[in-house]
Computed example of a mutant assay.
Amino acid sequence: MYFDGSCPLCSLEIGYYASCEGADGLRFVDVSDPDAQLAEGLSQDKAMARFHVQLPDGTLVSGANGFVAVWQALPKWRWLARVAQLPGAVQVMEVAYRMFLPLRPILSRIASRLGAKPKKHSDTTV
């Protein structure tokens, strides 16, 4: 899973996912680290702009589909992955995610003021 570790909000969310049962099967890559190893076809700019997940078969998914892939891997969140399988659910989630993206910098600043911290590059792979 590729995330923006320079974003306090993103780091808070990824830290939560990393603490969940099943997270030991996930790899967390901070794409704000210039030395981060990215999937083939994924640039740092693309990775910084949008959430991406590389599936075990090498397929790269992003946005709502990326979150669904993470939820499928975490037992506590599988119920939400099942909800996402309902007709039209992922499309609605994708629209919501695209609406969130322009707000992310503002929400990240708020999260930072509330104490959320960006990841240190040494903490990038969990």
Rank of each mutant, 00 (worst) to 15 (best):
L26A: 08
S11P: 00
V53D: 07
L60D: 05
R82L: 15
R50H: 03
V29K: 11
M93H: 02
A84K: 02
R82T: 15
R78W: 00
Q91K: 14
L101S: 05
E40G: 13
Y97W: 06
W79Y: 06
G88Q: 05
S62Y: 08
W79H: 01
A111P: 00
L55V: 04
L107H: 01
H121R: 13
P102W: 04
F100S: 10
P118W: 10
Y16K: 09
V83Y: 13
G66C: 05
A116D: 03
L60Q: 05
G15L: 10
S43H: 09
S43C: 04
L42Q: 01
K120L: 15
K46P: 10
L114H: 07
S32G: 12
R27H: 06
Y97V: 05
F3M: 03
D33K: 08
V92K: 02
I106S: 04
A89G: 08
T125R: 11
M99H: 13
L9S: 01
T125W: 04
G22F: 05
S32Q: 03
F51N: 05
L55R: 11
R113L: 15
A36T: 04
R78Y: 05
L9K: 11
T125N: 14
I106L: 13
R27V: 15
A69D: 11
Y97C: 09
V68W: 12
S122W: 09
E94Y: 01
G88F: 00
A111F: 01
S11A: 15
N65E: 15
V70R: 06
G5S: 06
E13R: 06
Q72M: 00
T124W: 14
E21T: 11
A36G: 09
R113S: 05
P87Y: 03
E13F: 04
A116F: 09
Q37L: 12
L114E: 09
A36C: 08
A96V: 12
A81I: 00
R50Y: 01
A36H: 00
A36W: 06
A64S: 13
F100R: 01
D35V: 10
T124E: 14
C20P: 00
A23W: 07
S112P: 00
R98D: 15
V83C: 12
F51E: 05
K117Y: 04
E40D: 12
